[in-house]
Design a protein around this nucleic acid. Structure first.
Lengths: 134, 134
DNA sequence: TATTATCCTACCAAATAAGTAGAGTATATA
DNA sequence: TATATACTCTACTTATTTGGTAGGATAATA
């Protein structure tokens, strides 16, 4: 399951994508429109900016905005930024790989099964962009 | 991510599947062979039995066993039993559906995206059986 | 220099995950 | 029928993660 945080992130990005390519949108506006707790959204957008998914501008007239076409940003990349791995096992994760201490991967049957699951899931999530969320 | 519990469940079932169609295997044997905490495994196997994924026999010579071909048991059904929904959003879950209070589903773009993800993921997980874990 | 709006660290409460404890119940077999 | 065996069941504990909040720092604008 997606965390609430990731769901908020995707909703907020959908809102920003709808404004693209027009100027910064304030956190407060997004929070109100999308019914997301303001301070929580601050944290989320900060993470997204650090991951270079969105850009921001401080001070009056500032806010958050896409500095590239939201079509170029995959849903997969947002989930990875907020929730971490998409795979169902650490030992099959492409971006967050971690060895299982109870499987050797070469002979592990779980590993093989969940590589197939990962590939099927990621194929869809990489193809979907934030533009699809408008 | 799969919970540890679900991972244990799949490993234990793989062990039982390898024994199929031969007699009951004791929890203690599975726990030792698969390095799963004994008491935890007790709980897990109990859940699996209640879901009619495996059968059990009490007393001397008792234990757990498959009473049907493990080929007939999907990995999806085990995950659902132990971890619950496979989908990434409650509002697209087939077995654990729950309305999102912030989306109306007809117009919700998240909903549409994650239906596609669900279909791709489940297609693989329904096809994989416990027999593939031997 | 006042105002606006993001930035950043730390904190907190509730829920979930992971595992443990111990007594109860059914079954085989001597 | 006594006894040992092995699952059954409920409740509990502890650690981690989730879902936020609080409040001051920083930067841009006018």
């Amino acid at each position: 399951m997606l965390s609430n945080k990731a769901k908020y992130a995707l909703r907020a990005l959908g809102y920003l994508a709808a404004k693209y390519p027009h100027g910064p949108v304030q956190i407060a506006e997004i929070a109100e429109q999308k019914k997301i707790p303001l301070k929580f959204l601050e944290n989320i957008l900060l993470e997204l900016r650090k991951a270079e998914i969105v850009a921001s501008k401080k001070g009056k007239g500032g806010g958050y905005f896409f500095d590239k076409d939201p079509k170029q940003v995959s849903v997969a990349s947002v989930i990875r930024t907020i929730d971490g791995p998409i795979s169902m096992l650490p030992c099959v994760s492409l971006y967050f790989y971690k060895k299982c201490d109870d499987c050797d991967e070469i002979n592990c049957s779980l590993n093989k099964v969940f590589i197939d699951v990962r590939d099927a899931t990621i194929k869809v999530l990489e193809k979907k962009s934030i533009r699809d969320l408008i």
